[in-house]
């Protein structure tokens, strides 16, 4: 019996001395192979008396199991420390990276415009576009602004040297797109027209001669001023948050009647004018071949740049057109 224990102790000592997985594996034949002492001992069992044999067999088995368990345990331990050592050797400081290629940035106005477009698409609108150089018909006359009208002066129009004097201009609002849409499309119409517009405003922190606007137009049966107020309320809440309040205030635009300004009220309780709106003037509908007795509609418009300013708290509109990457990369 004790001889089995000796055999086991000897094997255990060898296992303990192995200093790596490979060295341990190399011991395997000497401990468990055909010529190994424990294997040889098993052969010797047959020479024993039956009653002794049983007891000796159990003892030998126990010794062998003890050695096998120690081997497996030692092997797992050695493998784990080898892995730990290898991993430690390749430890890396992830902040130690060289500057990757600089990322690109969509313009602050594009980002704002896309967001607005998406909100209106969600409300069932399409996006309409049109030329930036326009005729007086589309920019003024079809919009119920005859040649003598004082409102013409208020648009501070930039004219171009084509046609008769003051016949062709850089559009001073995106409303010409509304006219072109009404001319080309049967109602119902649900569109927004984003785009660049131009006025003789000297560039400063809050003005640019080229700036961006978005206008909406709805022509359908039974459209009311209440629909306009509700639509403005809906998109303002979608854009700026559900807690914002909106209101309409009577105003004047030649192409809408009734006309209104729309204000928003934020957390601080003060009202801020956001844009203009109104029910499309019957003269404008008629100019586009739409019967105002059958169809009614509303229009609204506001500045995209201003929303970008509000959202990002920029302080100088000129940055929008200055092409300075130090500005562009912030958004």
């Amino acid at each position: 019996m004790s001889s089995y224990d000796d055999l086991a102790s000897q094997a255990l000592a060898e296992i303990e001395q192995a200093d790596g997985v490979d060295a341990l594996d190399a011991l395997r034949p000497a401990i468990f192979g055909k010529k190994a002492p424990l294997t040889e001992a098993k052969k010797g069992l047959g020479q024993l008396e039956p009653d002794e044999r049983k007891e000796a067999g159990q003892a030998l088995n126990a010794a062998r199991q003890q050695v096998e368990a120690a081997f497996d345990e030692r092997r797992a331990g050695l493998a784990a420390s080898a892995r730990a050592e290898a991993l430690e050797a390749e430890r890396m400081d992830l902040t130690e990276h060289l500057g990757a290629t600089a990322g690109g940035h969509a313009h602050i106005v594009t980002q704002t415009r896309d967001r607005l477009e998406d909100i209106f698409i969600g409300m069932g609108y399409s996006i309409a576009e049109g030329p930036e150089v326009e005729t007086a018909w589309y920019n003024f006359e079809a919009l119920n602004i005859p040649e003598w009208h004082p409102a013409r002066g208020s648009f501070d129009t930039i004219f171009v040297n084509l046609g008769e004097p003051e016949e062709v201009m850089l559009r001073s609002h995106t409303s010409p797109v509304q006219i072109r849409t009404m001319e080309n499309q049967e109602p119902p119409i649900y569109i927004v027209c984003p785009g660049r517009v131009y006025r003789t405003d000297t560039a400063d922190a809050t003005h640019l001669p080229a700036f961006n606007q978005i206008e909406g137009l709805v022509i359908d049966k039974g459209i009311t001023l209440g629909d306009l107020a509700g639509t403005i309320d809906q998109f303002v809440k979608a854009l700026l948050g559900p807690d914002l309040e909106t209101r309409l205030r009577p105003s004047y635009f030649p192409f809408t009647e009734p006309s209104a300004e729309f204000d928003i009220r934020g957390a601080d309780g003060s009202w801020l004018e956001l844009g203009g709106c109104g029910m499309v003037h019957p003269n404008t509908l008629r100019a586009c071949g739409i019967d105002p007795e059958e169809w009614q509609g509303f229009a609204f418009g506001f500045g995209i740049d201003r929303l970008a300013v509000m959202r990002y708290q920029t302080d100088d509109l000129r940055e929008f057109v200055n092409n300075d990457v130090r500005f562009l990369k912030q958004f």
Binding site: M123, S126, Y190, D233, E257
Partner: peptide
């Protein structure tokens, strides 16, 4: 109509939202 609305109060008018039959899409 505008004068009636002005004296009634634009803020008093109930807000409604028209539902277009078309889908919005780029």
């Amino acid at each position: 109509a505008e004068e009636v609305g002005r004296m009634y109060g634009f803020e008093t008018i109930t807000k409604t939202v028209p539902k277009p039959e078309q889908n919005g899409a780029l």
